[in-house]
Design a protein around this nucleic acid. Structure first.
Length: 513
RNA sequence: GGGGCUAUAGCUCAAUGGUCAGAGCAGGGGACUCAUAAUCCCUUGGUUCUGGGUUCGAAUCCCAGUGGCCCUACCA
């Protein structure tokens, strides 16, 4: 079986993690967990991009060595993964030897193949910003904006990769592989970009203006342009591990689809004789309270402290429930609390608690067997029917990355369990001594618990620790075969349940502590 | 300037060109008491951004606007 290989983009360590980083990790994690649950063998890679000009500049500004700076920020990203319950199998840093070796090897190979050549680049250079400027950077009157400081036209020798040579191949590749980019409509953007002739890609920076990078193996006066370096992480991480490459999905932000991932990357691989990835998944961006994320204006959410305050699974749930994959979405505390209270605290958390409480009160804390004389009745058949329609729908939605709708359907099922409880009213049945009522009571408690187990199982990819907790209070441990567990049965019969469980305390109450 | 996406109820989203555009939340009314003031039932609410067009039929397809987001290669 070929491994399902999925990656996030590697995060640039120029700054600390924010909500966008958290989302990408959680989204990728949900896909990875879902594939594992479906029986695939999964390899999940994430990591950090540590070279380049901004890292060098920021490290200098702080008066620390770039490597030391990278060590510190990289640790924050590792901590983010741990905090968010990300199930990555590997974490790559582009300053690691395993990565640098692969980059050097591929550069040398492309150079030997004659696909890299030296040429002069002429342009307007801003010393203050340490970068070449584009025509679009100019003021309308032709002058350069103040932030660039002194701008001079200079000529610089650099190495170029023959990108253009592969343009026709790439267009053909994209037309043959219509599902290369998800969502599909984004592939149009790539093809539109390719309707103009590509320029060859400058893949070097002279050391006089940038030292913090991977040295070109064929010219030690230069370091590698950071995109060329960074993209190779997906391959370098698994170059020594057979059976993993090619990647099934690179999960990335929509901002880095064109040109790096959809143009540079497939061409780099093609040129090096390596199979291209199977697909790219481009997700949208979060705004915060309706406007762009910005640290300087304080419009910023720290995912780690947010998770500390409200719970990791609550944050994971919100991000996946709220965002339609590929589209943008807005993050606000009001919307978060609305989802938290209605779905997590009221629908699910309260259902867990009332199920436990009634089982304790009316059945001595042991989940009874459903009584066969009643399982053909309308409330029971309706609940089972709801499950039978919910399950395939949710699985199919998850296969298509429609996780936000899948969660909506899952919670509709959970609401169905609450509705079932109201119909049967076990608190009334419990007061009756009639044998038929006692039979209905046993069935009701059994059905509530079983339905809860099943509904919870559908949340396994999104809220892993919540699932363990709910199973725990039901005296249950999920089996190795998830799909086999998604079958209505009597797995819980005879289990001793916990006394009580407040899984999602109301935030107001939590704050009073 | 060029390109891609997007706009549906107060909010977040659904709706292979085909019944009266549907859900959840919020709002209003009622019921219930096992439960985290919870749950359940009923219910208000739409010029599908605007203007044209194609079609027997358009939220959906085409054209033009408007707002938002992103890209437009050497910052990543």
């Amino acid at each position: 079986m070929k491994t399902f290989y999925i990656t996030t983009a590697i995060d640039y360590v120029n700054g600390s993690p924010h909500l966008g980083h958290a989302y990408e990790k959680v989204l990728t994690d949900v896909i990875a967990r879902f594939r594992r649950l479906m029986g695939d063998q999964v390899y999940f890679l994430t990591g950090v991009d540590e070279h380049g000009q901004k890292v060098q500049q920021t490290a200098r500004a702080r008066g620390v060595d770039p490597q030391q700076f990278c060590d510190e920020i990289s640790q924050e990203f590792r901590a983010l993964c741990a905090k968010l319950d990300i199930s990555n199998d590997d974490f790559i840093r582009t300053t690691e030897k395993r990565h640098k070796d692969v980059v050097a090897k591929i550069l040398q190979q492309l150079f030997d193949q004659g696909l890299i050549y030296k040429a002069e680049y002429k342009g307007f250079y801003s010393t203050r910003q340490e970068q070449f400027l584009q025509e679009k950077d100019r003021n309308p009157d032709g002058t350069w904006p103040e932030l660039f400081g002194e701008v001079t036209e200079i000529t610089e020798s650099n190495y170029f990769f023959k990108l253009r040579q592969y343009q026709d191949w790439l267009v053909d590749f994209l037309k043959t592989n219509e599902n290369f980019v998800f969502p599909r409509y984004r592939q149009k953007q790539v093809l539109e970009f390719l309707s103009e002739p590509l320029n060859d890609l400058c893949i070097s920076r002279p050391k006089e203006r940038l030292e913090w990078g991977i040295e070109l193996p064929f010219d030690r006066d230069y370091v590698t342009y950071v995109w060329f370096d960074a993209l190779l992480n997906y391959y370098s991480a698994v170059a020594e591990k057979p059976g993993i490459w090619p990647a099934d999905f690179h999960v990335i932000g929509k901002d880095i689809l064109v040109p790096p991932h959809a143009v540079y990357w497939p061409i780099m691989l093609k040129a090096a004789g390596i199979e291209p990835p199977k697909s790219l998944l481009a997700h949208g961006w979060w705004s915060i309270n309706g406007s762009k994320m910005s640290k300087s204006t304080g419009n910023f959410v720290d995912p780690v402290s947010f998770a500390d305050q409200y719970g990791v699974d609550a944050l994971r749930f919100f991000m996946i429930r709220e965002m339609s994959v590929g589209q943008d979405s807005d993050f606000s505390i009001d919307q978060f609390l609305s989802r938290y209270n209605s779905n997590l605290a009221n629908d699910l958390g309260n259902l867990v608690n009332r199920t436990l409480n009634m089982t304790n009160r009316f059945a001595g804390g042991v989940i009874p067997a459903a009584d066969e004389s009643t399982t053909g009745d309308e409330p029971e058949t309706a609940l089972r029917a709801l499950w039978e329609s919910t399950k395939p729908e949710v699985l199919s939605l998850c296969e298509g990355f429609q996780f936000h709708v899948a969660l909506e359907r899952t919670f509709a099922f959970i609401q169905g369990i609450n509705r079932y409880a109201e119909q049967r009213a076990p608190w009334k049945l419990g007061k009756s001594t009639d044998a038929a009522d006692q039979a209905r009571l046993r069935t009701t408690l059994a059905y509530m618990a079983e339905a809860l187990r099943l509904g919870t199982a559908l949340l396994a990819a999104v809220m892993p620790s919540t699932v363990v907790k709910i199973n725990g209070v039901l005296g249950h441990t999920a089996g190795a075969d998830w799909q086999a567990d998604l079958v209505w049965g009597d797995k819980l019969t005879g289990n001793k349940v916990a006394e009580t469980a407040i899984l999602f305390p109301r935030p107001q109450a939590a704050e009073k502590k």
